[in-house]
Structures are given as C-alpha cells and as structure tokens.
Simulated assay, not measured.
Amino acid sequence: MELKSYDSTILPLLRRMSYLEKLTLYLRIKDRDRFIDGTHLENEILVYMPQLHSFTFYICTYIDTVGLIHNLSSEDIQRTFINIGQHHVASIVNYINDTQIVCSIFSIPFTFDRLEDIGNIFPNITFSCVTYLLVQDVVPFNHEFFVRVVRAFPLLKTFRIFNCESQSLCNINSSESYEIAKYPYLTYLDMLGADINYIEQFLNEKKTYVPHLTKLKVVYNSLRIVTNNFTREETRYNCAKIKRLLMVIPLVHSKDFYYYFPLL
C-alpha cells in the first residue's frame, strides 16, 4: 500500500487496536518530513498494543533531502531499534536522486514478495520470498552488484532497473571475463529507465544468464545498438524466448529483428 496520509489515517487506526496479538504491515509512505524508524514504531504504535506478540513489517518512507543536517545512513536507522531487537530488524537508506531519500525498515526474515527502491547497499541476507524487485540509485550498478542480487533474491521473476549512470569502466564490446549472473526464474525485465550499459549487462550471455526471459521493456535504439542491429551472437540467446517487447519501435522491422525474436 502506498500512502500520502499515514499520520492522519493509518496511525490513528493502529492505536485503536489495543487487543491485537498479530500485526503485518506493508507500507510505502510519501509526503512525510520524517522517517519511520524504530523509535517511531516503539512510541507511536507498539506502546498501544500491549498484547502484540507477532509483528511482521516492511515500511518504506520517502522524504526530501532539502533541510537535512547530515547524511543519513542505515546504521543511524538501525540504532533506533535497540528496544525492539536489532537482530530481528534490517534497514536500508538509499539516495534515489539528488532530492529524495528512501528509508526501508523491515522485520527479518523478510516474508513479502515485493521490494522497491533499494540501491547498491543492502543487507547481506537472503530475501527468499521476493519475486518483484525495483532497484534505483544515483551511483552506477556494476557487474558485481547484479551477482549479489542473484544470491540475495534467488526466486526473482520481475526486475526493474532505474539508473541513468553508466557502469564504471564498462565497455559494451569488452572481452573481459565475468562471473555470470544467473537469474533462473526471471521472466520480466524493465530497463526503460536504465543506461544502455545495463541492457548490455543483461542481454550479453557472457555476463548474465536469463533462460526464461519472456518480457522486456527497453529503449528501442539502445536495444538496436547493443545487439548490433540484431545480429550480435553474444546477445542472441537471452533474447530468443522473448514474447513481449515493450517499447516505442518502428512499424517495419528487418528480417534480422524477427530472427532475433522468433516468438514475437
């Protein structure tokens, strides 16, 4: 649930649930001037629920960076969970653009199937239930980042990448050897808001293995460049099973295009 009126709607409702024994929250909160952290949970919610014995949550707060006195870190947020139990909670702070920060706090293990707006820095845990992931950062994602994502999100099916920064030292014609990032369950890849290097990252079979990719959202011209006008062998395999291409494209395609995407 995405909210713009958390303090006036959800919070008063929660405070009336004094007999609640089990609570599960999944919230994405916007238009608030302070993050939801451990102190807030303790003083504004949990103190009103004396019989609560099970609390599973994912709460993501978006705030503007204007007016911040210092750069906020995940460690700052983590320290606010002393009374709740830091070993059962994780936090991620991500600067998604020049004017906005996202703070995500969640109980461990993470039991939800959707996670959004995380960046290069995330906890070294396994998100075994997540099938939908959206990543966004002002710092480039390098190849090692996508290898870490594979390990942390083993059942990922939908992956959306927003990053206009070019990968560090990335050359789409490079012959450098990589540890292949294997996404065995990925079916939908959205790179419409990503730099061309990330298209290379995922379509080049020497870098990424996506055997079940059937849906791709991408800028047509970037796709054309990466695939060398739909003739490049290194990117052919990862395109072979695509059934849906979401992009603004010419009405007429070459024969090479249809050979490249035989299931369209």
Rank of each mutant, 00 (worst) to 15 (best):
S177Q: 15
L156P: 03
T158F: 11
F112P: 04
R148W: 00
V147N: 04
Y220K: 01
I101W: 08
K217E: 09
I96T: 02
L186K: 09
L213Y: 00
E116Y: 10
K182Y: 03
F162K: 14
T131K: 09
I118Q: 12
H212V: 01
I108W: 07
K207I: 01
N204D: 00
D190I: 06
P123D: 01
T214F: 11
V138K: 08
I172L: 14
S175I: 13
T131R: 00
I196A: 12
K182P: 05
V135K: 04
C103F: 11
L115E: 10
V130W: 01
F146N: 09
H143R: 04
L156A: 04
A152G: 06
I101Y: 04
I125C: 15
T111P: 07
M191Y: 01
K182F: 15
K207A: 05
N124D: 13
D117H: 09
I108G: 07
R160I: 08
E144M: 06
H212Q: 02
S174V: 07
G193K: 06
K217Q: 14
N124V: 13
F106L: 02
T158Q: 14
F146E: 05
Y183T: 03
L155E: 07
I199D: 10
F110H: 08
K215C: 15
Y209R: 05
V219K: 13
D117W: 00
F106W: 03
N163R: 00
P154G: 09
P211I: 12
E165D: 10
G193Q: 04
H212A: 02
F153K: 05
R160E: 15
V139E: 12
F106A: 01
H212G: 09
N197H: 13
Y209T: 09
I96V: 11
D137Q: 04
D117M: 06
K206G: 03
I199G: 08
N197P: 14
L186G: 08
Y178A: 08
F141I: 03
L203R: 07
L216S: 00
T111D: 12
L186C: 11
C129G: 14
C103I: 03
T158S: 13
S168Y: 13
N142E: 06
I172T: 11
P154E: 01
C129A: 10
Q167I: 08
V102I: 08
D190S: 14
S174K: 00
F122E: 09
Y132V: 10
L134G: 04
F159N: 08
N124T: 12
T99F: 10
I199M: 14
Y132E: 05
L216K: 02
V147E: 07
D195S: 10
T187I: 03
Y132A: 11
Q201N: 15
N124I: 08
T208P: 05
F122V: 01
N163H: 06
P211L: 14
